[in-house]
Amino acid sequence: MFFHIVLERNMQLHPRHFGPRLREKLVSKLMKDVEGTCSGRHGFVVAITGVDNIGKGLIRDGTGFVTFPVKYQCVVFRPFKGEILEAVVTMVNKMGFFAEAGPVQIFVSNHLIPDDMEFHSGDTPSYTTADGAVRIQKDSEVRLKIIGTRVDATEIFCIGTIKDDFLGVIDDPGAAA
């Protein structure tokens, strides 16, 4: 789920940037530092939409670096248990398939793939129903439900299921071709 929230961060800035463009520097550094990071509480920081407030800088003894408290608005993406997501399959193997929904990687184990879909190895490994009507392979788009998440320092890893009503392939590149 996406949220637009206000976060705060202490930014350290090198003295060389002190000058008329200090604020600009600070914001660009903020973007560089923060966008794409991930925290267990807020999820992925997708984009910074604005800087609300930059506090007074405090010069660090010894280094000359200045610490600014910065309040900024950002869009975060945090997957939740039970959330339904649409994701693109990135890899299929016998254990299941990996899909990505933006920055989040979701693994759908073969235990959580409907039983009528079987794994077919080959050039493009896929999960296919017996009649071949439904096929999950790389680049397929699937709708899945997240059943568990694990948050690391740098990524959120989810496991999902498509073994439920209205879940599964929503767009099949193979079929379209």
Binding site: K81, L112, I146, I147, G148, T149, R150, I159, T161
Partner: peptide
């Protein structure tokens, strides 16, 4: 018996 739900870590 202990009980777990799918998705538990």
């Amino acid at each position: 018996c202990k009980h777990f739900e799918p998705g538990d870590h």
